[in-house]
Amino acid sequence: MIQVEDLHKSFDGHVVLDGISFEIGKGQVVALIGGSGGGKSVLLKHLAGLMKPDKGRVIIDGADLKTLRGGQLRALRDRLGFLFQGGALFDSLTVYENVAFPLREKTKMKEREIREKVLKELELVGLKGAEDKYPSQISGGMVKRAALARALVRDPEIMLFDEPTTGLDPVIGQAILELIDACHKRISFTGIVVTHEIPRIFSYVDRVLMIYEGKLRVNATPQELMRSEDPVVKSFLGY
């Protein structure tokens, strides 16, 4: 479903991605790990079409993102959900209005149907009762859950998670990972999770991609990764 071919990206002469290539099958969830500043979020933004590569291609269901314009790009983004690291909730809207926003703007659903869907999504992420609060009035964990509800409200086929548990305490972080897993079981999206939650994330993903010095060092199952004799991998995992 997702193919990345020989992706290169530099900023002001500093090489961030140096020939990354991989494939993700439909319904798979993949963890993207690596050192801080290693290019994981940059890679994720390429998959969302928010950045264009210097060289290489991102192909989603046969469509090269670089060639998509206007209506075609919008059609692809209708199938995509993105959980930003900080949540990126619209701070002048309540939690309810944030989650309802994509339904109001992109669908022809009636307000009653929207209300039903939004309240159901909020309940699934454990935010029942918080719908009238503004993002500044809720905790970091609640912001992430509201952002997750907004990203999932249109049942996307592809979900991209940019460090969903960063900045949260371990208990809340675990709850977020379990929520993502439950949502995946419910709607079977194809997902990529940028994370530092090692080894916790391994229970929730099919494969692990590790970026090191701009290159793809590892593309393996969690079990294969844990058995790896690569010194860089062992050092990163803390063995």
């Binding site: 983004r77 900080g86 701070d91």
Partner: peptide
């Protein structure tokens, strides 16, 4: 500006808006 740095504008784009 605050919407830009908190990725709210990116969120709008990713909703196809």
């Amino acid at each position: 500006g605050i919407m830009r740095i908190s990725e709210q504008i990116d969120a709008l784009e990713l909703m196809g808006l």
